[in-house]
C-alpha cells in the first residue's frame, strides 16, 4: 500500500464519494419527481445533458489548473475548500441542534411533483419544462460535486481518483433509486454533510497553510490531527448549540 494512501488517496476519494452521495440524492429526488410526473424520457434526457456539461467542466478546468503555480493553486483551492467545508460543517451542526430544519427528501419530491402537475400547456411544452427541471437539478447539485472533485484533484493530482469516487456515489444512488422507486429519505444526509464538512475543512486548512508557506509537522500526516480537531470541535459545538437552543445551560 502506498505510503500516502491514508493521508492523500483515501481522504480525497472518500470526501468526493460522500459529498457526491449528499448531492446526488438531492438531484435524484427531483429527477424522480420529473420521471413519475411527466415520464422518464425528459427526466433521463435532462439529467444526461447536465452530466455531460458537468463532465466537460471537470475535464476542462481540472487539467487547466496544472498551469497555475503550485503555491498559488494550493492557497486559492485551500481557501475555497475552507469556506466550503466550514459552511457545510456550520449547516450540519445547526441542523443537528435543531436551529435550522433538516433537509426532507420526501417534502422536496412532493413540492417538485406538485409544481410540475400545476403547469399547463401542450404535452411537448410540458415535456420540455420537465426536462429542463431535471437538467437544472442535476446541474446545480452537481456543481458542488464538480468543485470538490476539481479542488481535491488539483491539490494532489488525484483528479481521476476523485472523479471515480463521485461516479461511484452516482452509481450507488442510481441502483438504490431504481430498486426503491421513491426518494432516498433514509440516507443520513446531515451526518454525511457533517463528515464531509470535517474532511474539507481539514483539507482547506492544510492547503491554505501550504500555500502560505506553513511547515506542517509530519507533512501530509498533519491532515489526520486537523481532521480530528474539526471532528471534535464539531461534535462539541453540536452538543453546545443543542443545549443552548433548548434553553438549557450549556
Amino acid at each position: 500500500m502506498s505510503p500516502d494512501f491514508w493521508t492523500a488517496l483515501f481522504p480525497a476519494v472518500a470526501a468526493a464519494f460522500l459529498a457526491s452521495l449528499v448531492e446526488v440524492v438531492e438531484a435524484f429526488t427531483i429527477v424522480l419527481a420529473v420521471g413519475t410526473t411527466r415520464g422518464w424520457r425528459p427526466a433521463v434526457a435532462g439529467a444526461a445533458a447536465a452530466i455531460v456539461v458537468l463532465g466537460l467542466i471537470v475535464l476542462t478546468l481540472g487539467p487547466a489548473l496544472r498551469f497555475i503555480p503550485i503555491r498559488t493553486l494550493q492557497l486559492v483551492v485551500g481557501i475555497l475548500l475552507l469556506l466550503f467545508g466550514t459552511g457545510w460543517l456550520r449547516k450540519a451542526v445547526l441542523r443537528w441542534a435543531g436551529v435550522i430544519a433538516l433537509h426532507d427528501e420526501s417534502a422536496a419530491y412532493a413540492r417538485e411533483a406538485a409544481d410540475l402537475r400545476s403547469r399547463t400547456g401542450a404535452p411537448r411544452t410540458l415535456r420540455w419544462i420537465a426536462g429542463i427541471a431535471a437538467f437544472k437539478a442535476v446541474l446545480l447539485e452537481g456543481l458542488e460535486v464538480a468543485f470538490i472533485v476539481i479542488a481535491i484533484g488539483a491539490g494532489k493530482g488525484l483528479l481521476w481518483e476523485a472523479s471515480l469516487g463521485a461516479l461511484a456515489a452516482c452509481a450507488l444512488v442510481l441502483v438504490l433509486g431504481a430498486a426503491l422507486r421513491k426518494p432516498l429519505a433514509q440516507v443520513p444526509e446531515n451526518t454525511l454533510k457533517f463528515g464531509v464538512g470535517v474532511m474539507l475543512s481539514a483539507f482547506g486548512v492544510f492547503w491554505t497553510g501550504e500555500g502560505l508557506g506553513v511547515r506542517w509537522p509530519g507533512a501530509d500526516l498533519a491532515l489526520l490531527p486537523l481532521a480530528a480537531l474539526f471532528l471534535l470541535a464539531g461534535i462539541g459545538l453540536a452538543h453546545l448549540a443543542r443545549a443552548l437552543a433548548a434553553g438549557r445551560p450549556a
Binding site: 456550520r90 482547506g204 486548512v205 480537531l229 448549540a241
Partner: peptide
Amino acid sequence: GPVAAGFVLALGCVLILVETVLRETRRGK
C-alpha cells in the same frame, strides 16, 4: 514562524466556526 502559523490558522478557523454557530443559535432561539 512556519510551524506556529499552522497552529494559529487551524485554531483560528475552529474559533471562527464556534463563534458563527453560537451566534446563529442564540439568534435562532
